[in-house]
Write a protein that binds this DNA or RNA. Structure first.
Lengths: 343, 343
DNA sequence: CTGAAAGCGCTTACAG
DNA sequence: CTGAAAGCGCTTACAG
C-alpha cells in the first residue's frame, strides 16, 4: 500500500502539499495539484483512515444504535440513513441492542469507547446518565423516533396520525368507532398512548362519544385482532368501524370478520397502522409511517449538529400519511371490493 | 480524554508497560498490572481506536456488505452476525448496496478505501475483478448465502431443502405435486433453480413423474400465488399438493383456494418456503431457512480466516428445516384444522 | 503557494 | 519484567 510519502516523492513535492491537495485546501497552485493528482492515480493511493482519524482527532464515522427487532421497518430506516449520508463520505457503524442486559452494557460503553463523531439512537431513549455523559463530552447525538428534552430529534406525530385516520372514518359516516391497540412495548412506550389521544381528540372534535368498551388493548398478533372482533361483536351495539394500532392485528381483524360471515368494509370498516408489506397485498387501508424519512432527516440533523450544535435542541415532527385502500367505506356500503381481491 | 501517557504517569510506569497491560501481554508483574489497572479505572481511560489501528496496522473492524432488500430476513441475519461477534470486540461497519449503480461504486471502493480487517458479502457475488483484487490484497473475505470457487463461504442448500419438503408431501401420500416458484432475482439468481432440482430429484426418487404443467413460475406476490391456483385448477387433473417457492406466494395460494370453496389441506396441501413471520400466524407448513445461523457462521468463518486463511477455501452448507404446521395432510384428509384457526 | 517538522496516541522490538 | 525510543501515516501551524 503506497503512503502519502510515496505520492510526495512521485509528484516531487512535500507530503504537506499532498495532504493539502487531498483535503481540498484552496491555496494550491493548479499545476502542483495536477501533478499530485496524477501521482495519486498512478500509484492507486488511498489515504489511511486510521492515520487520518488520529491526526484530525475525528473518526469520520457515525454510529447508529438500533434495537434489533424485526417488526418495525428498520431496514427501511437504514435506507433513509443511507440516503442522508449519500453526499458525505462518513462511514456508518451500526450497533444493535437486543436484550436489556446487552443494552445496559452498550449504553455504558457509549460515551467512552465509541470514537464516532456522532450518534443516532433509533427508537431508544438512552438512560439519563448516558445522556448527561454524552452532553458533557459534547458528543453530537440525535434521537430518531423518540424524544428527550435535552436532545435534538426527529419523530413521528402518532397522535396526529391517529386523528387523521379517525377523521377518515368519521367523514365516511361512521359514528360507532373502536380503537384496537396493543400494550405499550418496552422500546416504544408512548406510541399506543399517543394514538389513543389522537383518536379521542378526533372523536371529540366531531362530537362523538368514545365508549370505554370500544377501547381495546390486545396482543400484538393476528390472534389479538381476532379476539378483538369477538369482543366487539358481543357488544349490544358493535362498532361499524375500527382503527387498529398495527397492521399485524388488523390482519386478524379481517380474518375474524370473514369467519363470522361479515364483509369488510360493508359490515366493518378497518384501518390499520404501519403499512407493512402484506397490507398492500390485502388492500388494507392503513397509516403509513414515514420510516425512511425518519432516517434521512435523522442523519441530516446529526450532520448539522456536528457542524453547529443546536441550542435549544432542534425537534422535528414528521407526519404520517393515510393510505386509503379497500377496507374502508361508508357504513353498509357493499360496493367496494372487500379485501384480498385480485386487482 | 486521558491518554496512555496520563495513565503511565498516574501509575508511575512507562507507557510501554501500560500498553502491555492493556493488551493482555503475559509477562507483566502482578503488582505492576494492578497499579496500572487501578490508574486506568481512576482516570476512566479508554484507548483511542484510531491510534491503535495506526500502530497495529489493523482496524479491528469488520465490514458487512448487504443488499438493501426488505424481503429477506436480513435483520435476522445481522442478529446472527452479532451473535458470532459477541465474544470478540470487533466493530461492525455495514455497507448497504442498493442500486446496481451504487453497487458498482461500492465494489470499486472496496479493496481500496476499506480499512476493514475482513469483509462479509451477504447475498451478493462481487465482480470477478473485485474478487481478484481482494485476494491479491490478502483481504479476508467470506461469502454468505452465495458461492465462489476462490472464496470461503456459508450457504444454504436449497436443493436439499426443496427435496425435504417434497418428500414430506410424498410421504403423506401425494402423487400429483406441483412446484410454484418465482423468477430468479438479480440478487439470488440460482435459488429457484436449486429448488427445482431438489423437487425433481425427490420426485424421481419416488418414481413419480413431474408434469411440465405442474412447474409454474409466477410473480413473487400473493397475487402470483392466486394466479397459480387458477392455472392449476384448470388442469384436467389438478395437483393435490403444492410446494411454493416463497411464503408470500403461498399466502395467495391459500386465499385463492378458499375463494374457490376448497379447503386446505383437505383439497390441497401447501408447503411454503422461508418461514416469514406471517406463516406462523396462519399455520403454514414451510421451510425455515436458518438465516441467523448463516450470519453466525459467516462471522465465525471470517474470524478464522483472519487468523489463518483457509486454502482451499472452506465451504459450509447449512440445511434448512421443515416446519410442519396446519396446511399439509394426506390427500382428502379433512381432520386437520385448516389455516388461520385460533389455537 | 509550499516545505520541514512537530504531533496525534498507540505498539513493539531493543536493551537492560 | 520494564523503560526509552522509533515508528505507524496522516495533518497543520510555522516559516519563508
Amino acid at each position: 500500500m503506497p503512503t502519502i510519502r510515496d505520492v510526495a516523492r512521485e509528484a516531487g513535492v512535500g507530503v504537506g502539499t499532498v495532504s493539502r491537495v487531498l483535503s481540498g485546501h484552496p491555496r494550491v497552485a493548479p499545476a502542483t495539484r495536477a501533478r499530485v493528482e496524477a501521482a495519486v492515480a498512478r500509484l492507486g493511493y488511498r489515504p489511511s483512515s486510521a492515520a487520518r482519524a488520529l491526526a484530525r482527532g475525528q473518526s469520520h464515522t457515525l454510529e447508529v444504535v438500533v434495537p434489533l427487532i424485526t417488526r418495525h421497518g428498520y431496514v427501511e430506516l437504514l435506507r433513509g440513513i443511507e440516503d442522508g449520508l449519500a453526499e458525505s463520505d462518513y462511514a456508518l457503524v451500526i450497533r444493535t441492542i437486543e436484550r436489556p442486559a446487552a443494552r445496559e452494557r452498550a449504553f455504558t460503553d457509549l460515551g467512552h469507547t465509541s470514537r464516532a463523531d456522532g450518534i443516532i439512537f433509533v427508537s431508544l431513549t438512552p438512560p439519563e446518565e448516558v445522556v448527561q455523559r454524552l452532553r458533557q463530552a459534547r458528543m453530537p447525538v440525535v434521537l430518531v423516533d423518540r424524544e428527550h428534552p435535552d436532545l435534538p430529534g426527529v419523530a413521528v406525530d402518532h397522535e396526529a396520525a391517529a386523528a387523521l385516520a379517525t377523521r377518515h372514518l368519521i367523514e365516511l359516516g361512521h359514528r360507532r368507532i373502536a380503537l384496537v391497540d396493543h400494550p405499550a412495548e418496552g422500546l416504544t412506550p408512548g406510541v399506543p398512548e399517543d394514538r389513543r389521544r389522537g383518536f379521542q381528540a378526533a372523536m371529540a372534535e366531531a362530537g362523538l362519544a368514545v365508549r370505554p368498551e370500544n377501547l381495546l388493548v390486545m396482543d400484538l398478533s393476528p390472534e389479538g385482532g381476532m379476539a378483538a372482533v369477538e369482543t366487539m361483536l358481543a357488544l349490544p351495539e358493535p362498532p361499524t368501524a375500527v382503527l387498529v394500532g398495527s397492521d399485524t392485528q388488523a390482519v386478524g381483524v379481517l380474518e375474524a370478520t370473514r369467519r363470522r360471515g361479515l364483509r369488510v368494509p360493508r359490515d366493518l370498516a378497518v384501518v390499520g397502522y404501519g403499512d407493512i408489506e402484506m397490507s398492500h397485498h390485502i388492500g388494507l387501508t392503513t397509516v403509513r409511517v414515514p420510516v425512511r424519512d425518519l432516517g434521512r432527516q435523522g442523519v441530516a440533523m446529526l450532520l448539522s449538529e456536528i457542524t453547529a450544535p443546536s441550542s435549544p435542541p432542534t425537534r422535528t415532527w414528521l407526519s404520517a400519511e393515510l393510505i386509503v385502500r379497500r377496507t374502508t367505506a361508508a357504513p353498509g356500503d357493499g360496493s367496494r371490493g372487500g379485501w384480498l381481491t385480485l386487482p
